[in-house]
Design a protein around this nucleic acid. Structure first.
Lengths: 326, 326
DNA sequence: CTGAAAGCGCTTACAG
DNA sequence: CTGAAAGCGCTTACAG
């Protein structure tokens, strides 16, 4: 590869002045500038990012921590993050943590050694102090981690209220809630919303932990439907678990939406691929990923943050699983 | 951050000997080694990857080029790549190209400036010469790009043959093929396989280009079903387009598998989330991603490759959309 | 076995 | 306006 030295030689100036025109910093005469630019063109020179990195102690790299990119919620987020990062000249490193602390820590170590500039965390993390001790800027996405970490979330509770009210309006009289893992804040908040509406209308209901995976949720729903054949509405804590519920209904020969109405949460594109198409509470996934990335950028620039909590409104999206069918 | 100098001072040796114990290279006395190790522990020293990178002209970074990580086929591949890369101490940078040449080139430039060690390409690319001109090792995954680039694919044609034969065995008499974009080798090969079986049995059929996206495929299928109401079998070139076909059938009040049998291709987890569960031709996605990564690693080590073409067998996976229903 | 020195490719005070 | 020099944090001939 051609280096700054080659350019300097070609342009008949010192490397310092090449550097000056590269960075548009310091005084350079018109003639020198021209000569350097010409040399750069001739040699097709591109500055070495690693050398720059060594001097500046920054890398233009951000780490994106997700539990598992194959879970369909994360790719849409990842896409947004990557778009926003690229737009600002940053590069994103994908980190699948499986929610394992040792993996997280390994990634953090590697990224720190590479002068990573920031981290976006979409994982429940046990390594809060460890992360903060690196002094790398961090933002939490779709998860609350700690007071000290800027957070981008959606209105989980209100979304759950909307979903449950909708089921009630559709005439459901016995509603099951497939809740996400206890301790995951978003799952807890969705459960809160559900409970509030149920209590307000005093509707028969049942709650079960269905994890975040489809297999688990299908099994859980199946059990539920066998125990309580009169269940006529299901509010799932995620679209993936809603898909599991739909499978279970199918296996139990219940038809959707005729016998059972179903609504999910997230608004991932999976919902539109299902038949019938899944009603859901739409999080503005792309916007959230974009916002998180932009927040991170402003932290990297060491600017003040307006706010440490960014909550996006969810939107009730009625498709086919929750309406009609008589 | 603490540097090698700090360690040297702490251990009362020169930075050279610290470097030697770090890299386990060259002679170091037992005593010096002990002292250095102790100092490293005390100071919690971690070598600076950027400085190493500058000297070695390598970075431990590989770029993963996909059209769009939100398309559900790619996350499963990305997961495999990331796992295999991490296992070898590499880090993966996610690059969404949208199949746009300018984006590809931008990423290539940035990665080259960072001393990226290798590229895995899961995109139809127009930049072959540009890529090769960087001299960065490359492998093509699920796509054939050029003779000069090692390729990991599955047996697309045989898979398509199996799928079509299966539909015939199930008694389909008028089969539609939703083919992928012309010019994408995997789509072309799948079409070849379909055609071969159809001709062998001289079965009524129709072929339409359905792209790789669900919306397009739903629309295409709908038109098809309106024009040819006697279609009773659909072989889709991907699981995503199969999902679109299922949606279309639903809209046209055709029941699956009773009225129409459907089979997809890919074997992504989406298939199991659908109701009824999608029959498909399973590619060993994870294994393919892993293989591609390992090939890349051996290229990075400048070892000889056994072979430039790695073809994985597909597996016919019968679930619910293609059998029974009478 | 060990250290001083040069070098990887940049950037930026500093002196002129 | 410009260049020589030091420095970012490592590694590795080279000399001893």
């Amino acid at each position: 590869m051609t280096t700054i030295k080659d350019v300097a030689k070609q342009a008949n100036v010192s490397v310092a002045t090449v550097s000056r025109v590269l960075n548009q910093k310091g005084y350079v005469s018109k003639e020198s500038e021209e000569a350097v630019k010409k040399a750069i063109k001739i040699l097709n020179y591109q500055p070495n990012a690693v050398a720059r990195s060594l001097y500046h102690k920054t890398s233009g790299i951000i780490g994106l921590f997700v539990p598992d990119i194959s879970n369909p919620f994360f790719p849409e987020l990842a896409r947004a993050v990557e778009d926003a990062a690229t737009a600002e000249g940053f590069t994103v490193v994908l980190c699948n943590t499986d929610n394992k602390q040792d993996k997280e820590q390994k990634y953090i170590q590697v990224l720190q050694q590479k002068y990573a500039d920031g981290l976006i965390i979409v994982t429940g993390t046990e390594s809060v102090e460890h992360i903060l001790s690196t002094h790398i800027p961090v933002v939490a996405l779709d998860r609350y981690i700690s007071e000290d970490i800027p957070t981008v979330v959606s209105s989980n509770k209100q979304g759950a209220i909307d979903a449950t009210e909708h089921l009630v309006e559709q005439g459901c009289t016995f509603i099951a809630h497939l809740r996400g893992p206890i301790g995951v804040t978003s799952a807890d908040e969705r459960y809160e919303g559900f409970k509030q509406v149920i209590e307000k209308h005093s509707i028969a209901h049942v709650v079960i932990d269905s994890g975040f995976e489809i297999g688990q949720s299908e099994m859980a729903t199946r059990k539920l439907l066998e125990m309580y054949p009169s269940i006529d509405g299901i509010f799932a804590s995620s679209d993936v678990t809603a898909a599991g519920a739909m499978r279970a209904a199918y296996k139990c020969h219940k038809s959707i939406p005729t016998d059972i109405k179903v609504i999910g949460f997230d608004g991932i594109s999976l919902g539109e691929m299902l038949t019938p198409a899944l009603s859901t509470v739409q999080q503005p996934i792309y916007d959230m990923g974009e916002r998180a990335t932009k927040l991170l950028m402003t932290m990297i620039e060491k600017k003040e943050l307006q706010s440490y909590r960014h909550e996006f409104k969810t939107k009730l999206t009625i498709r086919e699983t929750s309406v009609g069918g008589e």
